[in-house]
């Protein structure tokens, strides 16, 4: 399966087919999610209308963790099997993951002010999410920090793999430490502890964000594949120029002899 899509041409052909569906699904799910979130869901008995922030905050946080898990997987695949598209997939995913982490932090902070009376607390959940944001930024910065592109990719992949330890810490931080943040109410062993009128907009927005990820990932992958081809062409052009230069100087020396 992995080898089948190692070929960029085959991957782009598949992307051509998936991209319009991802676009349609994203727009439809997002419109439906917004409708249910804003117009067709009740206020919470404790949090009142502010519960509507949950419909964008929680899916953003899920996407932040989902994208980082993908980043760690692509980094592992790139390092172990040297899959030609794995590193490009990581590069295409990192800005999307960083953006969702930023959105989770910002919307969480805005939600925290009316509920907790503060914009920010340095507790385990918030701090570990903040660290995740810097892991994303570190990955993006390392990719282009070296003159040698391969060195940059390797350093970024190592950071992504080491940083993956933060993902379970984020997930279980609300169980392991005392925190202002509420515990999990959707993804838990005993099933979701949330009413269907609230679960519907939450799942719709979560699916819309997944569709958005697929749509933008394919766009970013096209850009990354074109960039990689540009780099390869530039290297071969430099090599050809050097070969031509050596050949010309050899011919000149032979002519002088």
């Amino acid at each position: 399966m992995l080898n089948r899509f190692a070929n960029p041409i085959r991957f782009l052909r598949l992307a051509d087919q998936i991209q319009p569906w991802a676009a349609i699904l994203t727009l439809v799910l997002f419109a439906a999610g917004l409708y249910f979130a804003l117009f067709n869901s009740p206020p919470d008995y404790q949090q009142g209308e502010t519960v509507r922030i949950m419909y964008i905050h929680v899916p953003s946080a899920w996407m932040a963790l989902f994208c980082y898990t993908l980043l760690a997987i692509t980094s592992g695949v790139a390092m172990i099997w040297k899959h030609p598209l794995a590193n490009l997939a990581g590069r295409a995913t990192a800005p999307i993951g960083a953006t969702f982490t930023f959105l989770a932090l910002i919307t969480g902070s805005i939600w925290g002010k009316p509920m907790w009376g503060t914009w920010w607390v340095w507790d385990a959940r918030l701090t570990s999410m903040f660290i995740l944001f810097f892991l994303y930024l570190g990955y993006i910065a390392l990719q282009d920090a070296f003159d040698n592109a391969e060195g940059g990719s390797k350093a970024a992949a190592i950071l992504a793999l080491v940083g993956f330890i933060n993902v379970p810490i984020i997930k279980f931080s609300v169980d392991w430490w005392n925190t202002l943040h509420q515990p999990a109410s959707v993804i838990k062993f005993s099933g979701p502890a949330i009413h269907s009128t609230m679960l519907t907009p939450l799942l719709l927005t979560a699916l819309a964000f997944k569709g958005y990820y697929v749509w933008l990932f394919l766009i970013n992958m096209r850009g990354e594949i074109a960039e990689a081809r540009c780099r390869a062409l530039q290297v071969s052009q430099i090599q050809n120029a050097q070969v031509a230069k050596v050949a010309t100087s050899d011919a000149r020396d032979a002519h002088a002899d």
Binding site: G48, I53, H57, T99, L103, I106, P114, Y212, W215, L216
Partner: peptide, 22 residues
Amino acid sequence: NGHAAFIWSSYGIVIFVLIWLF
């Protein structure tokens, strides 16, 4: 119910940032 600034700013930021990233 008095929370307009918090709710609308959250939705506004999310929509703006996602369109910008796209």
